[in-house]
Design a protein around this nucleic acid. Structure first.
Lengths: 224, 224
DNA sequence: CACGAATGAACGAGCATTCATTCTTGCTGA
DNA sequence: TCAGCAAGAATGAATGCTCGTTCATTCGTG
């Protein structure tokens, strides 16, 4: 949620107004997100958003200049959530390779919890303007940061084969997204846990240096 | 292009009409595809499609019952093209591992030639009905078939580590798509050739059995 | 000439956006 | 303490525009 911070907490009345305004903004964005994840931004009218939020149409325009701004708020909100959730979900593993796996499965879990939201970002990003798209890219790269960091550290310690960090980390990000993008393909063939385990095993089989394979035998388990 | 076959070639007049009708259908689908790849189906009006094709709005309704049917035609056309192009592009390599690489890079090349069309299928698939979505899934799985076959054969001959064919082939399909989906990320960081080479090397590093690595040293070249 | 192909103005539904009006809230001065 | 009064919050009917779809009419061809 990208909300203006209350700049002057010195004035309590002002702060209270700011808080109520933020709450309304959140309420509207949540209602819009709920609907748009189902039907896409074009399938949802401002009236429908108002109804879902239990307010009148006119009120939306007090908080968003127009529909495009509302849509942008929804998408950036979704991505912002992920940019917060994913770093937070990364287990504080000491070993870099184990942290890679932890970061990847955390990413998958967040994707699984927000499958429709992930789809929404792929479907609707192009409706945003230049500035909006720049923000999206920044946020997405940021969600991959924990993964990138873990890979880089594992590389530095000689635990991995020489791989291109930029490629491996983005491939993993994309594979995590694929649990949402290609749910119709994966879900009938395996459970979520099997998906994460198999993909992790595949990644480690790729990347871990042969000298250190034994250390991670527990993670490399035979693919389902 | 999914066109009704001329059922009765015995009647030449009928065949001629059929041919002209097919040409119109193609003309309209191409015009619609050109516009929708830029602006998505909701951003394109029937009037705009008619203008682009150089015909009147009314005529479209002679060939498509409504807009949704036109959109479906465009998306299925794009996927159908790929389902034809990709198997055709697979080099007739004898060695299964080299065929894997050939299939993957062929897939990437087709994606590169149709970047906007690939984006369109991701953005617009959800607007189709149940039947349309079933067709899409069939076509997409079919595009992965050459890849799947090559992997399976390599596995059978003991050239690969034990991997899950279903997962590896779909990961590769997705990674090829990612040249379109995440073009903004990859393109500033590497050329198309570097992308294909790095991803191929990554795949082979994963999958090729250590006993046979030397055979494919030329493909495993250090990642860019 | 007859029949299918093609036209494009007209229609109506749906939608984003506006704004005159009403309601709430919290402050002020008696 | 509280009546009353701004000012901001909220309402929702009205507006105007876009767009999908229709169909009476015209065109071209075999």
């Amino acid at each position: 949620m990208v909300l203006k911070g209350a700049e002057e907490l010195a004035v309590p009345a002002e702060a209270a107004r700011q808080a109520r305004s933020d709450a309304r903004t959140r309420q509207l964005l949540e209602a819009a997100a709920r609907l748009m994840e189902r039907s896409g931004s074009h399938g949802v009218s401002m009236q429908a958003v108002a109804d879902e939020a239990g307010v009148s149409v006119g009120l939306i325009y007090r908080y968003f200049a127009n529909k495009q701004e509302l849509v942008q708020g929804v998408i950036l909100g979704v991505l912002d959530d992920m940019a917060r959730l994913i770093p937070a979900a990364v287990a504080p593993e000491a070993d870099p390779v184990r942290r890679m796996v932890a970061a990847f499965s955390a990413y998958c879990r967040v994707v699984d919890d927000n499958r429709e939201a992930v789809l929404l970002t792929y479907r609707e990003s192009h409706t945003l303007d230049e500035e909006g798209r720049r923000l999206i890219k920044d946020l997405e790269v940021r969600t991959a940061q924990p993964l990138t960091d873990a890979i880089q550290e594992a590389l530095d310690r000689g635990l991995l084969m020489p791989v291109d960090t930029r490629i491996l980390s983005y491939d993993l990000l994309l594979i995590a997204h694929s649990w949402s993008l290609k749910h119709w393909y994966f879900a009938p063939r395996m459970t979520f846990e099997e998906f994460v385990a198999s993909q992790s095993a595949l990644m480690l089989a790729t990347a871990v240096h042969p000298d250190h394979r034994d250390t991670y035998a527990d993670l490399l388990g035979a693919p389902a």
